[in-house]
């Protein structure tokens, strides 16, 4: 039990990762697929941030009385990854809007049927 608690970040990461990917695969609604994709990407943020945390460490700014610092690198990386994620989500949504204009629906199977005609 304590082992699970000690690695709780990673368990959450796994749940988000698998859950997000499941939504992407299983849902037919294009907006929901994007939501799943967002969750999937979020799990990666946690995966990067977790090993960077040093228990008891502070932000890495030199100051008197603080010896222990957390690793700042993952924050920088994930800030970039978040920007990428937002851009992807925005573009995905824009495409869904265009698809709705062109087909009148955002359901995978209905769009597929219209494409067959």
């Amino acid at each position: 039990m304590t082992e699970i608690l000690a690695t709780v970040n990673y368990w959450v990461t796994i749940v988000l990762m698998v859950g997000g990917l499941y939504i992407v695969v299983a849902h037919g609604n294009m907006v929901k697929k994007l939501v799943g994709l967002g969750i999937f990407q979020t799990s990666v943020y946690l995966l990067f941030l977790s090993p960077g945390k040093v228990l008891g460490g502070t932000a890495p700014i030199l100051a008197e009385g603080f010896e222990l610092y957390s690793n700042p690198l993952p924050h920088v990386l994930i800030l970039t990854a978040i920007v990428v994620g937002v851009a992807t989500l925005a573009l995905g949504m824009a495409l869904v809007v265009r698809i709705h204009e062109a087909y009148g629906t955002v359901e995978d199977d209905e769009v597929h049927e219209l494409e067959m005609d």
Partner: peptide, 30 residues
């Protein structure tokens, strides 16, 4: 108009692919 669904499909699969790559990179970095 099928280019829109093609782009959407590519976006989903491409992002999943890129996220897999970044997970791999993250584990290597850790």
């Amino acid at each position: 108009r099928r280019c829109l669904t093609a782009a959407y499909q590519y976006l989903i699969m491409g992002t999943v692919g890129a996220t897999f790559i970044v997970i791999g990179i993250g584990l290597l970095w850790a």
